[in-house]
Design a protein around this nucleic acid. Structure first.
Lengths: 151, 151
DNA sequence: CCGATATAGTAACAAATGTAACCAGTTTTC
DNA sequence: GAAAACTGGTTACATTTGTTACTATATCGG
């Protein structure tokens, strides 16, 4: 029977299911433990490594569009977790960085995130993890061919 | 620096990015070619294999909750793609099946879906695909340990 | 049987996400 | 060096998704 499809065997479906479940686990943990949403956590993680970034740079680093970044950034700013300094090079943008409170929170969240990751992937060998990483990366690249234009 | 996390190396993040990109590719294709959303397509795919299912059975088969199933089912019914017959065993539920139009649509969508899958995973060896399947399956199982209760 | 509890499905509401319009401020072009 | 085109960021609106509540039927316990 040519052209027939079995849903359970359809990889985009399996990928979506697995990814959404993992995201739910992570989102629930962050929310209940730290009151953070995933988008906010992503900004914190990036800012913890490189201080003083514009929102558009954050957007690139986290693969989120500027609206998502804006929403997450104001939420974090309102909670006093990130600071906004004027950007000397461009008056439309500000440079974001973690406040002391933000750094402290990061130090709490970060090990918890890694522990969750370890637990979720505890059944995976180091080699499998390496392979999975590689596959996800290639998959992401493969989708670029479908972008509307100018990826 | 113990407990430190690099976002790009964080697997749940990479998984989420890759999965969302793939879903977008699929969703855009289904929408523009057939006016279908992913949830609707999933019902069609399941019904094509096994006629006469209740919505709750569909929910289990597609891993969608009953509200999502209800919405997708009414959309498909309104378009005349699925039929609803009374369920002799339970008057609260109906048995859904594809109409002729639904079957015809399935025959159109199905090869297209498989072609997309082939294209997205064209860089993967057969062995890699096997491994990915296995990993996604195990991952899904691993998240069950975090379910609120009674998974 | 008959009241209590559970289940199939829908409807109504809340929260999140995507999209488009907008307001500075910045660069380009002539 | 000023009008046109563009960019960073926010706001406002539309669409999608999740959650809760509800209606009708079924099942369970006595």
């Amino acid at each position: 029977m040519p052209g027939t499809l079995h849903l359970d065997g359809f990889l985009p479906y399996r990928l979506s299911i697995a990814s959404n479940r993992v995201s739910n686990v992570i989102a629930t943990a962050y929310q209940s433990l730290f009151g953070l949403r995933i988008a906010e956590w992503r900004l914190i993680a990036v800012l913890a490594e490189s201080d003083g970034m514009s929102q558009q740079a954050l957007g690139i680093a986290t693969r989120m569009d500027k609206v998502m970044v804006s929403r997450a950034a104001t939420a974090l700013h309102d909670r006093g977790l990130v600071q906004r300094a004027p950007n000397p090079a461009d008056q439309r943008s500000h440079l974001l960085s973690l406040s002391k409170a933000g750094q402290d929170l990061y130090e709490q969240v970060s090990p918890k995130a890694l522990a969750l990751e370890r637990q979720l992937f505890s059944g995976f060998s180091a080699e499998e993890v390496r392979q999975l990483r590689s596959m996800l990366e290639r998959l992401e690249e493969a989708t670029a061919a479908f972008e509307p234009q100018q990826g």
